[in-house]
Design a protein around this nucleic acid. Structure first.
Lengths: 183, 183
DNA sequence: TTCGTTACCGAACGTATTGTTCGATTTTAT
DNA sequence: ATAAAATCGAACAATACGTTCGGTAACGAA
């Protein structure tokens, strides 16, 4: 990709993220974004069809990155460790989040956290569905598989939300323990 | 309150709800609302400062109604039954929802469900916090109280979301059993 | 270095939406 | 019957959107 394209794209993403930490998505205008990113109006629309597409592409990059590396980490650790596979998945998710790569944590703490929490949930849903074998044994009762799946996801999202809203005082290990205890 | 005021207010709410089932909140314009409600532009702004305030007031009515009656139902049944108090609370919530009073269920199934799910969660959080005595004994481990509270809420919201997204095939009794089993 | 291609600029434009104003009309409550 | 209050409808300025186009600068390959 052309170096110019990369730079403008990053500038727009950066300005957008910065604005998302300050006000609601709805009240952010394209004018503000291009001013903060210091790019021409036409340039913005050459990159993104609309503000919503900008958000969608940002989420795509954020979560594709997070869950791709997560997939790898998880596969590695299945080979290295013989310990509880599911626990290591979630532990690494919490650890990865704590690093605030790509400002993901920043966005999950922003006034627009619902937006990103939703995307997060959708991606996590896939991850959980792909590895249902690791969790199925914990379904002691006779609950429908899809319900059990859904419960794992929403419990994780609830734990994550609580962790962030309470200042992330707990270590990833502790918060993973909390999570595993209630799931 | 003046009859005219009541009628316009209801007309606006009705048109708004109808539009919310068809498109995203962001793309609904005030022009569309007043056309559907058959109300003058100035009249709309005499009632609601802005579109966001309209949403807020709608949610206020919806959930104030739901949780007020729920409070009463819950108190009644604490007197009548000696059975598990917490279970009856959630059962009645599910039952009440199934009736689709005030189109609440319609809105929770709409493309804008996140909006209302959020409000729902916020109200439920208060309800749970006010009756923590009923749930505290189920906290077998040594988890922080606030974490446990949060978990109950997010599990309920997850269950409700799943129930709705899967066509609400289960009876309120069954879905309450599912819920109590995972919580 | 040169040269063709591509991206960016920036100003301007038409359109759509917002929220307000004001006088005229209708409805309400008493 | 009358005074108060709500609605109407048209118009208004202000803001934001998304597009267009000619000129300029940066890129990558030969």
């Amino acid at each position: 990709m052309d170096r110019r394209q990369r730079k403008t794209r990053e500038a727009i993403f950066g300005a957008f993220i910065h604005l998302l930490t300050k006000k609601n998505f709805n009240q952010i205008t394209v004018g503000e974004i291009i001013e903060a990113a210091d790019v021409g109006r036409a340039t913005f629309y050459a990159h993104f069809e609309t503000k919503d597409f900008l958000l969608k592409e940002l989420c795509g990059e954020l979560f594709c990155h997070l869950f791709d590396t997560e997939q790898n980490v998880e596969h590695d650790h299945r080979h290295i460790f013989t310990c509880d596979g599911s626990q290591s998945i979630f532990l690494h998710l919490f650890e990865h989040l704590q690093k605030n790569d790509n400002n993901l944590l920043t966005l999950l703490s922003s006034p627009n956290n619902e937006l990103f929490m939703q995307y997060f949930g959708a991606n996590l849903r896939h991850l959980v569905a792909d590895h249902m074998d690791l969790f199925a044994d914990k379904n002691s009762g006779h609950l429908p598989l899809e319900f059990w799946q859904n419960h794992i996801v929403s419990t994780f999202m609830g734990t994550l939300t609580w962790w962030i809203e309470n200042g992330m005082k707990e270590s990833p290990q502790i918060i993973t323990e909390y999570f595993m205890q209630v799931v």
